[in-house]
Amino acid sequence: MRVYLDDGDSPYDVVDALLLGRFASGAQPFAHSASLDNVKPEATLLPPGAEVLRSAREKERSAVLAQGPGWTVEASRWREGGEVTVTAVTDELAKEVLARALEGAAKEPDPEPESVTMGFWYLSVARRGPYRTTRTISAATWPEIRTNYSAGVADSLDQLMKVTPEDITGRLVLLHGPPGTGKTSALRTLARSWRDWCQVDCVLDPERLFNDPGYLMDIAIGEEDGNHRWRLLLLEDCDELIRGEAKHATGQALSRLLNLTDGLLGQGRNVLVGITTNEDLERLHPAVVRPGRCLSRIEVGRLSRAEAVAWLGHDQGIAKDGCTLAELYALRRGGSPLLPVQANASDGMYL
């Protein structure tokens, strides 16, 4: 096998090519790999006795190529995570060397009581396909943030936070309303409330997800943990995907979303989809909001003036029609909501 390099290649590409060369030539025709989201700083990700052949290092990235009797290993590190790929003369040897390389390398974070572990999916060019990483994020309990929402919204969220697998009917959770009303905060708290039975993943590039069938299939299948837990895929600010003209504007994207929730793609998969949007209910596509499709559909709006005054403790800066949660936090910090002046209906239209 010949490998051609030019000035656009890096030492990391050389390390990759040397590993793949032994696999492609058939000298070591078996390969196994694994990745870790959190690696101990002192871990080398190399099995004991490995002979280092190449090493490429940067500030927050490294790649080491090493070998042993009948096997070759590439250990890559980046920030907190890492990945190990092993090629070997037999499948059993590849698995054995991989296990030795990973032994004791994983760093198990101790989640604080107010934290929850969430997954994040994105299409990675470096890893040549969909990739999932996990992060521990802060999330308040529902009683701690309940007053952040108007009475009607809080009542609806009460029911959503209490949902169990036996309660699931529809597969879509839809939170819609103006920006700054606390939709994302509610989803973080939902992840904490459901963490005993549901794995929550946020898709960072939803516009690519529903336009790439391969990407969608990888996420729909997910990473099996053997427990058959439910999964909630979070898609934030998906206005273009679910508004009334979505079928015309985004092609097959809307159809694939609906297929994931209650079509053939979603059959046999314990998958829920959570969507936030700033669109009004009247502008959403009828197929999205039809009866039976949504497990929960909640319009998250402004707090009334009375609710806002109770939340803030005084009425200074609060408009007659109330405030959003973001505006209340700005007032609490001593700032101004910086709201644009609203035109009255009697003022007529303008260009």
Rank of each mutant, 00 (worst) to 15 (best):
Y4W: 13
D7F: 11
D13Y: 00
V15K: 00
G21C: 00
F30E: 03
A34C: 05
T44Y: 01
P48Q: 10
P48S: 11
E74F: 03
V86S: 02
A106E: 15
K107H: 11
E108D: 13
E108L: 14
D110W: 06
E114L: 09
S115W: 14
T117H: 04
M118H: 08
F120W: 06
V125C: 03
R127N: 12
G129I: 04
R132F: 04
R135W: 07
I137Q: 12
A140N: 11
W142Y: 15
E144V: 01
I145A: 00
A151H: 09
L157R: 05
T164L: 10
T169N: 12
R171L: 03
G182R: 01
R188H: 15
R192Q: 08
S193R: 06
Q199P: 03
V200M: 06
E207G: 12
F210W: 10
F210C: 09
H228M: 10
R231W: 10
L232P: 05
L235W: 06
C238T: 15
K247C: 01
A253I: 08
D262M: 03
L265C: 08
G268I: 05
N270K: 15
E282N: 10
L284P: 00
L284V: 09
A287H: 12
L303A: 07
D315T: 00
K320D: 15
E327T: 01
E327R: 07
A330N: 03
G335Q: 04
S336F: 04
P340V: 03
A343K: 14
A343S: 13
M349R: 13
